[in-house]
């Protein structure tokens, strides 16, 4: 489908540009400013060039945090995307069942992020929490504040619980937008459920799945509030993800310069990876359907 060529379409985009640029451009420039200066106090600063970038790039704790972040985001995407598509396919197409599923599905998404962490603290406590005491009851000593492995499992569980519904809602809306005629044609051809999924549903969901994958990648890569509240980055440094480490530098040590350099590098990593995801997903669609 070729698009119309018309530069007047810019007029439709300008409101969006203005409203986003208002909040985006000046703060970004300020952070770039911080990243090349040593700040001692208001009006007392020194230009240091790429000093902070060198310091941050050589920081071994940052490398460690970055590796953990990749592992976390990778696991989260591998679980949430297939699970989300699967559940969306299972959900009733109409009637009260569909309404009920949609409303229930949305509930975990609507809880403020700091509250999610707090609720999971109690939920996983071995003495008064449902999950914690259930696992203890099965004879497995459970305490995510002592065991790094259990802290990871708890965080992944919480993340999957919290965000799979987002994938489900997007995939479900994408599925509903497929015209009924496609399924009738497939039925006449005697296509199997798998063939319908592979050749009709999956290609038609490409748009919403691109958004789902990008959103889940970005938000899990930038995750802060939930692990900060639940594990505080511990035990030890086992769940100190990038943003938790960043806040430790920015607020804990009040090193604004290195923290700003860190933020920019962080931002570029997310940008680069999102762009790669985007390109791959765009091309996957062209080849497949």
């Amino acid at each position: 489908m070729n698009k119309w060529e018309d530069n007047r379409a810019w007029f439709l985009v300008i409101p969006v540009f203005i409203i986003v640029a208002f909040s985006a451009i000046l703060p970004l420039m300020t952070v770039v400013n911080y990243s090349v200066q040593d700040i001692f106090g208001p009006g007392d600063r020194m230009f240091v060039g790429v000093e902070w970038f060198k310091e941050v790039l050589g920081d071994s704790r940052l490398h460690e945090a970055l590796l953990k972040q990749f592992l976390f985001s990778g696991l989260v995407l591998l679980i949430e995307i297939p699970l989300g598509i699967g559940i969306a396919l299972l959900m009733p197409k109409k009637g009260w069942g569909s309404s009920l599923s949609l409303v229930l599905m949305a509930l975990p998404l609507l809880i403020p992020w700091n509250v999610i962490g707090t609720i999971w603290i109690v939920f996983t406590r071995p003495d008064i929490g449902l999950l914690g005491s259930f696992i203890n009851g099965m004879g497995i000593p459970f305490d995510h504040t002592a065991s790094p492995i259990q802290a990871w499992i708890t965080l992944i569980l919480m993340e999957v619980w919290h965000w799979t519904p987002l994938v489900v809602l997007l995939a479900y809306a994408g599925l509903r937008a497929i015209p009924e005629a496609y399924f009738q044609a497939a039925k006449i051809d005697g296509a199997s459920a798998w063939a319908v999924f592979k050749y009709i549903q999956l290609p038609k969901m490409r748009g919403v799945l691109t958004i789902a994958i990008l959103l889940r990648f970005m938000d899990s890569f930038l995750i802060y509030a939930e692990p900060f509240v639940l594990t505080g980055g511990g035990p030890g440094n086992s769940t100190t993800f990038l943003s938790i480490y960043l806040v430790k530098i920015a607020v804990g040590q009040f090193d604004l310069g290195p923290a700003a350099a860190f933020s920019l590098i962080y931002f570029l990593i997310v940008l680069l990876l999102s762009w790669l995801f985007y390109q791959v997903l765009q091309n996957a669609g062209k080849g497949g359907a």
């Binding site: 986003v20 000046l26 300020t30 959103l215 960043l246 933020s263 962080y266 931002f267 940008l271």
Partner: peptide, 13 residues
């Protein structure tokens, strides 16, 4: 890309 920046340091500006 405006969703991609870590918020912590951007809060002050």
């Amino acid at each position: 890309t405006n969703r991609m920046a870590p918020a912590a340091v951007f809060l002050l500006p």
